[in-house]
């Protein structure tokens, strides 16, 4: 079971997309980037659920942006990765690389 301050698989994907998007990270580009990079259909409700968990863990902060007419007058909510979130991503990367290292079954594209 995941410890409360660890990153889940989908949460990790969301944080990586947030880092990639920088200052333009709100719901629509986050979903589009996730869909483009994973090739899966992503439900915006799942993305927000992950973002709320990440915010609860202190890995992400959010702020309200400008409302626009094409959004029915509703404001965008921008998300940013915190320093703590970045540390956790680096730690997860280190952990995964250590686990990957030396697995001959996963080298050369063979399952």
């Amino acid at each position: 079971m995941l410890k409360r301050d660890q990153l889940g698989n989908f949460e990790l994907m969301v944080v990586l997309v947030l880092i990639r998007l920088g200052d333009n990270a709100y719901g629509v580009p986050i979903c589009e980037e996730l869909e483009r990079r994973t090739g899966r259909n992503i439900a915006i409700g799942s993305v927000y659920a992950a973002l709320e968990r990440l915010e609860g863990k202190g890995f992400v902060t959010s702020e309200m942006g400008e409302p626009t007419p094409e959004r029915g007058g509703r404001a965008k909510q921008y998300f940013h990765v915190t320093a703590r979130g970045l540390r956790e991503v680096r730690e997860t990367q280190r952990l995964l690389v250590r686990l990957w290292h030396g697995l001959t079954e996963l080298q050369g594209g063979k399952a």
């Binding site: 719901g27 915006i44 959004r71 029915g72 509703r74 965008k76």
Partner: peptide
């Protein structure tokens, strides 16, 4: 924000 994103 979710509704705004869906509308967009």
């Amino acid at each position: 924000a979710v509704i705004g994103d869906l509308d967009e």
